[in-house]
Structures are given as C-alpha cells and as structure tokens.
Amino acid sequence: MTESPKPDFEGLRARHPEVFDRPLSARLATPTMMIAAFSVFVFGLIDLEFSPSRFFSGLHQLGWIALMMIPPDPGSSLPVYLVALGETLSIALLGTTLAAVFALPVSLLAARNIVPSSIFRFPVRRFLDSIRGVDTLIWALVWINVVGLGPFAGVLAIAVADFGAFGKLFSEAIEAADRKQVEGIRASGGNALHEIRFGLMPQVLPVIAGQVLYFIESNTRSATIIGIVGAGGIGLQLAEQIRVLEWQKVSFLILMILVAVAAIDWISSKLRFAIIGRRAVV
C-alpha cells in the first residue's frame, strides 16, 4: 500500500500565519473569559449568602409542604376557581391580542426594508427596547397604581410588555421576507402600500400568527404571576390560599393552571401546524 503524502506544514504556516502564529492576546482570551466567569460565579455565591446547609435543611420543609398538598381538594370554592381561571385566560388572550394589533404598524417603522433611513428607524427601535426592557410584573405594579386593582390592570400590563417584544419580532420577520415578491409588485406598477400589502404581508403573517399563538400560551403563566400582585385571576386566589396555608387548595389551583397551559399549548400547536400547512400549499 502506498503511504498518503504528509501534509506540508511549513507551506501551510507560510500561507496562513494568522492560524499558526496567533498573538498572545488571542490565545489568552478564552481562558481569561472562563476564569472571569468562574470568578463572577463564586463571587455571586458568596455575596448572595448561598448556604448548602440551609438548602438541604429546607428540603425537609419542602417535603412536608408536598405531603400537605395531597390530595388536591378545592373544597366548596370550585366555582370561584373556575371563574378566576377564565379571568386569567381572558387577561392573557386580550392582552396579547391588543399588543399584536398595536405592534404590527409600529414594527413596519422599525424594519430596515420599510424605513431605510436610520434617522427615523433608530428612535422606533429604541422605544421598543425601552418598553421590552421592563418586565410584565413591573408593568402590572405600575398599572395597578394607575387604574386600580383588577384584571384591567393585568390586561394593560401584558399588552404593554408584549408590545415591545412583538415590535422587535415582527420587524425581524419583515426584514427577513423575500424581496422578490416585493420587486414583482413594484414591476407591475404597484406603489409602496401595495408592496407591503401584497408583497410582504402574505409572507410574514403566518410567522406573526405563530408568534402570537406562542405568546398566548406564555402569557397564561404571566397572567397567573401578575394576579398574585393584585391584577386578578387565578393568581390572586393562589396567593390567598398560600397565605392561609391551605395547601390542598393550592395544589388544586396549580393543577388547574397546568391543565389550562397544556390545553392551550395543544390548541396553539394545532393552529400553528394548520397555518404552516396552508402557507406551504399557497
């Protein structure tokens, strides 16, 4: 058998000196970053007073609470809990829908292929960043002080928080759209509005619909959390039962939330596949 020719390392070194003779700073960059990350991790454990003994001693308390949750029992409050669950689902659905409706036109202004000038596009993007940078729970606390306790504050909190997220996601979907369809509309004599309506929207609407469906599922959990701070829904009931140590009712409420989220996930997945299938046929 003939031996395979040996690689010409000297020739490779001569042609690609940047690979073989990397500067010292480049060779030390990765280990320096790893050491820095590990140092920050250790500092965080010390600064936050992480204690393994406290953690393992707390497991005993956690086990006692888990035993107290069995069996789940709503008592005589099942009708109240069903109304509260419906309120939570309504908060998630209405808040997400409002956010999507208002974010779609703003996302057009944030898309590079719609507004080429960065002078006009930059403030829109930074505005969306500032809205998105505040968590839903913080918006809930703000709106509770503005409009008072109740589900209306929860709807506004989810709508405002998702407005920033949708603005970014929708604008990225618009920028990723195929330009050939837009150019075809322009070649046939269409104006800028025709390009958006018939060239861009048919491409991005299935993507947008899938994102909205996912956010409805996610916001069901968010609506539960903001309900704890007074925005209504099943989260308020959950906080009250934890406060009075009614652990069987707490476990029943958690099961209701899990079933609701699983059902919404199943429905939204079916809708997403239906939308994708219709898009493929078109």
Rank of each mutant, 00 (worst) to 15 (best):
L48V: 09
S171T: 06
E49K: 14
F9P: 11
M68P: 03
F41C: 05
E246Q: 13
A280L: 14
R126Q: 10
G210R: 05
H16A: 12
K270H: 12
L104E: 07
T97A: 14
R186Y: 00
I257M: 07
I131D: 02
L82Q: 00
M33E: 10
D129H: 06
G86M: 01
L137M: 05
W64T: 15
L12R: 10
V160W: 02
A26R: 14
N145Y: 05
F102Q: 03
I264E: 01
L271E: 08
D178R: 07
T30C: 13
F273N: 15
F215N: 06
A66V: 13
F163E: 01
K6G: 13
A157D: 06
I196E: 04
L149I: 07
E10Q: 13
N113K: 06
Y81N: 00
A165Q: 11
N113Q: 09
N113G: 10
I131G: 01
Q61M: 14
R125G: 09
L12W: 11
A26E: 15
A260Y: 02
F120K: 07
A14H: 10
S4W: 09
N191E: 13
F102S: 03
M201N: 07
P74V: 05
M34D: 04
A223G: 03
S25Q: 14
L85G: 00
G199Y: 00
A274C: 09
D129S: 08
G150K: 10
A29N: 01
V182A: 12
G63P: 09
A37K: 06
M33T: 10
L89V: 05
N145V: 07
N219V: 09
A92F: 05
E246K: 12
A192D: 15
